[in-house]
Design a protein around this nucleic acid. Structure first.
Lengths: 352, 352
DNA sequence: CAGGTATAGTAAACCGATTTATCGTTTGGT
DNA sequence: ACCAAACGATAAATCGGTTTACTATACCTG
């Protein structure tokens, strides 16, 4: 087995005293083969430790069992988990995943798409740098590559898309905080205002409006070009007098949650004593830190599964049919940062 | 260009009025071709938007420009960054990376190695589930796949390996804490005691011993089977009387740092006021949280680069030569959790 | 000008599989 | 006993490139 070259299908055929075509038929489950030959071929396969070369196989088949997965980066656990989930689901369907990172650059995105296209991938799952309307998407369309867009998508797409249900999840946060009698809530986002962030704000405010229009909501957005993420936030806190402190904070991204926590600790505002905190996008450290942070967890696993499923079903259907927008439901993990002890609740009521 | 089928080298040859062999020569930079033909072929290539199919190319070449990258998981930023770095370096050398996750299972590791071997990859870069002496390593040896092991390795390997210099980094932490006049330091690890963790302890304690044998070091290890990671740690804190509190803590993994922070906050021990904190393994949240955490950053980028470099050079040399163990130097990021203001320093001195 | 050497190009084999077309051998029906 | 259908196996074509071996000119050189 350690002999330099690996056995080919012809070696197996020779060993078993049949033709390569027969071996191929056996491996692909064609039934018109004598049992005796099956046995001899199987014996030859194990004795030579033969395994088919996917490269040769894929060359012969026009359509290849390869899926391209393109993500902006892999430093963040979110995209890593996504890629891992795609691998899992694709593997279950007998596909191999080829990945590439676009490094948040549209130029590079176009580049890697072209390379994936060279490999004649069956389809692509893309977390776009911009959205499913950027240059990458156009190229995928031109190349005729069946694609599904993930996570960073805007409305009214020509492609199948899969995202977390940002709107609904934020509405649930609104519901939860309203039920805890919060009457003044600060919403904060330190990262760029993407479509997802817009939906989170929209879902939160519109649902609160329904519940009780009197609840006050302040929104602080930091633009992308702002160097000090903390500046705008800090200024807002300075603006509050003793009587109109918010009693709850909803931070719209993982990074925002960190910035907010930092600011709260600096100001010695206790969580959850004086302010309840809910973050969008869960992370491991939020479970372990003290207080542990209540957060909306994006359903990474099911997003990945859904993306692969959508891609495969479109591949089967020959790409026909209207594009489908999938929304995967998030889960709100309630932890210590929103534990409303009686003291806190009374204190908050006094402030109203 | 949107026409169903893609152009092949034969289409280009026909369009340019030459043979496929000539086109191939031009693409591979063989010089014995008339300029006129080069021009016509180039024109045909752009007009047909031709790009070579790597699958066909790799089939013909025995050796394939593919590198297998196998990591235990992708949820953690560390392995994600590693994979990303490998992609980068491999791409620069004209190789494509095929990845797989072993999901911390040796069974699966063996499985994905076998699949990578099917693709006849040129070599493999592996972060092993166990170490470079597990079943996966054995299989790679049997299959004759040139391999480099990354991160989780033990001493005296038969393979090339690349790791962070755990020993040296910990010695530097010792140096740093000793210079701050700490005389009693608690070392804590909440995760399984791997070779890396052993080296971190060894590097720390042996260097402290050199500096001043009188400095007291307490080590708390939580075994893997221990369900409540906090129990052993908490018990240790309970054991300290007013007079023998440690003034500094060195936590040996990212998870340990979280557990430790959680415990410190619970006990209302202020950082860095009463206790200085240094963590092994940096994370984004450590920069942003308050206080920001002093931590040892592993050189992910250079580890990835080095792994690819080592693999490629062994591929070129035909696999000959003794295995090389590479140690990549870590960086200590000094942040607020070890800011020794005068008050703190005086308080600590009194405790001695 | 014969003979040797570059130069430029192509036909055909090849990589390792799958698939098609074909062929010999049974089997079955009448 | 004859012909058709079914069965089982294989040679050869194919996928899209690369490489080898060979040919035909053009270019020197003595």
């Amino acid at each position: 087995m350690k002999s330099g070259k690996r056995a080919t299908i012809h070696d197996v055929a020779r060993e078993a005293g049949v033709s390569a075509a027969t071996v191929s038929k056996i491996l692909n489950g064609v039934k018109t083969v004598k049992q005796e030959n099956i046995d001899r071929v199987m014996a030859a396969i194990t004795s030579l430790d033969y395994r088919a070369d996917p490269v040769a196989t894929e060359l012969r088949h026009g359509q290849r069992r390869l899926i391209a997965a393109i993500v902006p980066e892999l430093q963040s656990p979110f995209f890593g988990a996504l890629l891992s989930g795609i691998e899992d689901a694709a593997e279950a369907a007998g596909y191999k995943v080829m990945f590439a990172t676009s490094r948040e650059s549209e130029d590079r995105e176009v580049d890697v798409i072209r390379r994936m296209s060279d490999w004649r991938v069956a389809g692509a799952i893309v977390v776009p740098v911009q959205s499913e309307k950027g240059r990458g998407a156009t190229l995928l369309g031109d190349l005729g590559i069946t694609s599904v867009f993930l996570d960073r998508v805007s409305a009214g797409s020509a492609f199948d898309t899969v995202t977390a249900d940002n709107f609904r999840a934020s509405a649930e946060v609104a519901e939860f905080l309203a039920a805890q009698n919060h009457r003044h809530i600060l919403v904060h986002c330190a990262t760029a205002t993407s479509e997802a962030v817009r939906l989170r704000i929209e879902g939160f405010t519109s649902h609160l409006e329904n519940i009780d229009p009197a609840i006050r909501v302040d929104v602080v957005l930091n633009d992308a070009d702002q160097t000090d993420k903390r500046a705008a936030l800090s200024k807002r806190w300075d603006g509050y007098g003793m009587s109109d402190y918010p009693t709850a904070v909803f931070s719209l991204s993982q990074h925002s949650t960190l910035v907010m926590l930092s600011e709260l600790r600096r100001r010695k505002i206790s969580v959850p004593g004086q302010v309840a905190l809910v973050g969008f996008d869960d992370a491991e450290w939020m479970r372990t830190t003290w207080p542990s942070i209540t957060a909306v967890a994006q359903p990474v696993e099911s997003m990945a599964r859904q993306a692969v499923k959508a891609l495969l079903s479109r591949l089967e259907s020959g790409g026909e049919g209207y594009p489908v927008q999938h929304l995967e439901r998030c889960v709100l993990h309630i932890r210590e940062s929103t534990h409303s002890n009686d003291a806190g609740r009374i204190a908050r009521r006094r402030l109203d």
